[in-house]
Simulated assay, not measured.
Amino acid sequence: MDAQIAINKAASKLLGKSSEKYMRRRFKKLKEQMKEISKEQQSIREGQRQVAVKFKAIEEECEQLRKETHQIIRQSANTQIRLSLMFNILMAREQGDFSKAANLTQLLREIIARDNVSQSTNP
């Protein structure tokens, strides 16, 4: 054990001041590199945060578009039903089936009233 310590001391004396300067320069350079890496990591974290914020905004926009698309599909189906009823009312009147025309007209009124109520509760 004592021999190892003696060897280390002898090596330090042989290497002298130039070795110590080299180690200090190297240590300083490593510290600078670590600072640079730290800055880069901070930049990466900030970029990841910005991407997360943008991704959340896109998800919210997609959800809004899904809701709007669903609303449009529902409105289109309701319009199709109304048009079909109107056509059947016209056909019943042409054929002189006024009872059927009256029933279909009443059904159309009920559908329109129901849709108006649901539209006023769901703006």
Rank of each mutant, 00 (worst) to 15 (best):
S12P: 05
L14H: 12
L14W: 01
L14Y: 06
G16Q: 06
S18V: 08
S18N: 07
S19H: 13
E20W: 09
K21R: 08
M23F: 15
R25P: 01
R26E: 08
F27C: 08
F27E: 12
K28R: 06
K28M: 10
L30R: 12
K31P: 04
K31R: 12
K31S: 10
K31N: 13
M34A: 15
E36N: 06
E36R: 09
I37Q: 12
I37D: 04
I37W: 10
I37V: 14
S38E: 11
K39W: 02
Q41P: 02
Q41R: 15
Q42G: 15
Q42D: 06
S43Q: 11
Q48Y: 14
Q48H: 15
Q48G: 07
R49I: 00
Q50C: 06
Q50P: 08
Q50E: 12
Q50N: 02
V51D: 10
V51Y: 13
V51F: 02
A52R: 03
A52Q: 12
V53K: 09
V53D: 02
K54M: 00
K54V: 01
K56T: 03
K56N: 11
A57R: 01
A57V: 02
A57C: 02
I58C: 05
E59G: 05
E61S: 15
E61T: 14
C62H: 12
Q64R: 13
R66Y: 06
K67A: 03
K67T: 13
K67N: 12
E68I: 10
T69G: 14
T69E: 10
H70M: 05
Q71A: 15
I72V: 01
I73T: 10
I73S: 05
R74D: 14
S76V: 11
S76A: 04
A77T: 08
A77I: 09
N78E: 13
T79Q: 11
T79P: 03
I81L: 07
R82K: 11
R82T: 08
L83E: 13
S84A: 14
L85E: 00
L85T: 02
I89N: 14
L90T: 03
L90S: 15
A92F: 04
A92G: 11
A92Q: 00
A92C: 04
A92N: 01
E94G: 08
E94N: 10
G96E: 02
D97M: 03
D97G: 01
D97P: 09
F98L: 01
F98K: 05
F98E: 11
S99T: 05
S99L: 06
K100D: 00
K100G: 03
A101L: 07
A101R: 13
A101P: 08
A101N: 12
A101F: 01
A102G: 07
N103V: 04
N103E: 11
L107S: 12
L108R: 01
L108D: 07
R109W: 02
E110T: 07
I112L: 03
R114A: 06
N116H: 07
V117H: 01
